[in-house]
Design a protein around this nucleic acid. Sequence first.
DNA 1: TGACAATGTCAAGTTTATTTTACATTTTTT
DNA 2: AAAAAATGTAAAATAAACTTGACATTGTCA
Lengths: 64, 64
Amino acid sequence: MKNKLKVLRAEHNLTQEQLAKAVEVSRQTINAIEKQKFDPSLVLAIKLARLFKTEIEEIFIYKG
Amino acid sequence: MKNKLKVLRAEHNLTQEQLAKAVEVSRQTINAIEKQKFDPSLVLAIKLARLFKTEIEEIFIYKG
DNA sequence: TGACAATGTCAAGTTTATTTTACATTTTTT
DNA sequence: AAAAAATGTAAAATAAACTTGACATTGTCA
């Protein structure tokens, strides 16, 4: 799965730390997701989509 | 997190087994999600939304 | 240049999602 | 009512998500 987290975060002028706090995970979790180490949980994906006022699948692209 | 999986599955006339195969997980995984034992992974949530031609958040309701 | 903020990364540990196997209960069909 | 199908559930194992702590690299800026 690909994702546009880094771009969205940049557009919103947030550091990994700030984003992490906003969605209640660790900074390393944000970093790992941006670096495609793993995918977020459903809850985290929802929180991110809400924060960026967009759809989950606009952020996380899964080619099934 | 709440979900409408059981209802959607009923509307689509699918058994847990059939749904499980369609989204490539075990029957127990479908059962556990319906029974709210845990939430699906993001990939599984996407597969389910696609199968039912709806949005993830129409199926999985998270009150943040 | 030197400090400081931000990012990348690693290891070890915890929690959660998922699998397999197996069996009991409930629902549907004959 | 008996057989078969569907559902519920549980234990044990594995994988994936996430944590904390620590440290190295990179970027920014006074």
